[in-house]
């Protein structure tokens, strides 16, 4: 599969995941003065803006990490 096709599939996957998020949730990222709602995030991803690309990267980074994340026992921290 060509790299561009793979990227399109990844974008579609990220958008599909975004579409499951409640509409009243907002993501604050960077120095924007308000959060991005789900529809705005989808546009950022679809248009592959800087914010959109970083969002895609973070989704992929997390998915790749799943095989390495241990399930923590209760950590006794107190503050």
């Amino acid at each position: 599969m060509e790299k561009e096709e793979l990227k399109d599939e990844i974008v579609d996957l990220v958008i599909a995941r975004l579409q499951t998020i409640p509409s009243n949730a907002s993501l604050h990222v960077g120095n924007e003065e308000r959060g991005f709602n789900v529809n705005e995030l989808i546009e950022q991803v679809r248009n592959r803006t800087d914010i959109g690309e970083k969002f895609i990267d973070s989704q992929l980074s997390f998915l790749r990490s799943l095989k390495d994340l241990p399930i923590e026992e209760d950590v006794n921290f107190n503050y």
């Binding site: 009243n24 949730a25 907002s26 993501l27 604050h28 990222v29 959060g35 970083k54 973070s58």
Partner: peptide, 12 residues
């Protein structure tokens, strides 16, 4: 070393 992120339900 990157953008700090957080999700909110700011309307509520």
């Amino acid at each position: 070393k990157e953008l700090f992120r957080m999700w909110t339900q700011e309307d509520d």
